[in-house]
Amino acid sequence: MSRFLNVLRSWLVMTSVITVGHSLQSFRDHTFLYEKIYTSKPDLVNGLQSLTFGVWMLLSSVVRGLCAIDIHNKMLYYITLWTFFIGMGHFLFEMFVFGTVAPTIFMLAILTVASISILGMLVGLRHLEAEPGSRQKKRN
């Protein structure tokens, strides 16, 4: 396996662990969402939204962790890449269309991690395709 894919696997584990942390914070107390993320319109944040956000983050974390374990599974790889696109798209829409998210340091960090992840995973696709004898899942 190429060195880049090993670094990417470590990156995915790191993002998975961070995402679990955000998920647990959302389950524990919904004030996390309006204090750190939806700071422009905190009155719109409620407990149900916090639980939904927490479930989404937990699902993203599981997908990213599984991709780190089996990075050669192309379907899982693409699903993982989409978790970053969807997350980034959500926050950009919230910031520029709905106005519920302010460009705070916390939000800029989230968008930076998503951008680096998307870029890294797109570059990783080249490395996966270039690997000699890369494991391909056979369909019956």
Rank of each mutant, 00 (worst) to 15 (best):
M1C: 04
L5T: 03
L5W: 04
R9Y: 10
I18W: 09
V20T: 13
G21T: 06
Q25F: 13
F27K: 07
T31V: 12
T31G: 10
F32R: 08
L33K: 01
I37Y: 00
K41E: 14
K41C: 04
V45E: 02
N46P: 05
G47F: 13
T52Y: 10
T52F: 14
T52N: 14
F53N: 05
F53Y: 15
F53S: 10
V55M: 14
M57W: 12
S60N: 13
V62S: 13
V63R: 01
R64N: 09
C67D: 01
A68M: 06
H72M: 08
K74G: 07
I79S: 03
F85Y: 12
I86M: 12
I86C: 05
G87P: 01
H90K: 07
F91C: 00
L92H: 02
F93Q: 08
E94W: 04
M95P: 00
G99L: 04
T100R: 13
A102W: 05
P103I: 00
T104A: 04
F106E: 00
F106M: 05
L108W: 13
L108F: 10
T112H: 11
V113E: 03
I116A: 14
L119G: 11
G120V: 02
G120K: 03
V123F: 11
G124K: 08
H127I: 05
L128N: 03
L128K: 10
P132T: 14
P132H: 06
G133Q: 11
S134G: 08
S134Y: 11
K138D: 09
R139I: 09
